[in-house]
């Protein structure tokens, strides 16, 4: 059971969270400009790397807020927890400092 540092609540047990899969998959600007194959990419296809993976979690049994994490899918180590549009370029193992409530999850 992983210990996950919610950006708003701090470290909590994995059981309080739900997994949200790959992060930074934006809803297409204009879905109708996409052909079926491109649309299928958005709907069904996700990266599945072995190693660091930018992914989403939601603290569903806590503050109910979504956030992003850079986590190693082999070691399960959380390399970073963040709310921005891109993962911080840190490889530090320290969890991101809890941010004040009210800061927006920007994605």
């Amino acid at each position: 059971m992983q210990l996950i540092a919610c950006p708003w609540c701090g470290q909590r047990e994995e059981t309080e969270f739900h997994y949200g899969g790959q992060a930074h998959i934006a809803y297409p600007e204009d879905p109708y400009a996409l052909d079926d194959e491109q649309w299928a990419q958005y709907v069904f296809f996700r990266d599945n790397p072995k190693g660091p993976f930018a992914e989403r979690w939601v603290h569903s049994a806590g503050c109910r807020r979504w956030f992003n994490a850079l986590r190693d899918t082999v070691t399960h180590e959380f390399l970073a927890v963040y709310t921005g549009a891109t993962p911080p370029s840190t490889t530090s193992t320290a969890p991101a400092a809890p941010q004040r409530k009210g800061q927006e999850a920007s994605r």
């Binding site: 992983q2 739900h18 997994y19 899969g21 599945n48 072995k50 993976f53 992914e55 986590r71 899918t73 082999v74 070691t75 399960h76």
Partner: peptide
């Protein structure tokens, strides 16, 4: 629930 290659 999460993606994992760690076999645990």
């Amino acid at each position: 629930s999460y993606n994992g290659y760690g076999q645990r």
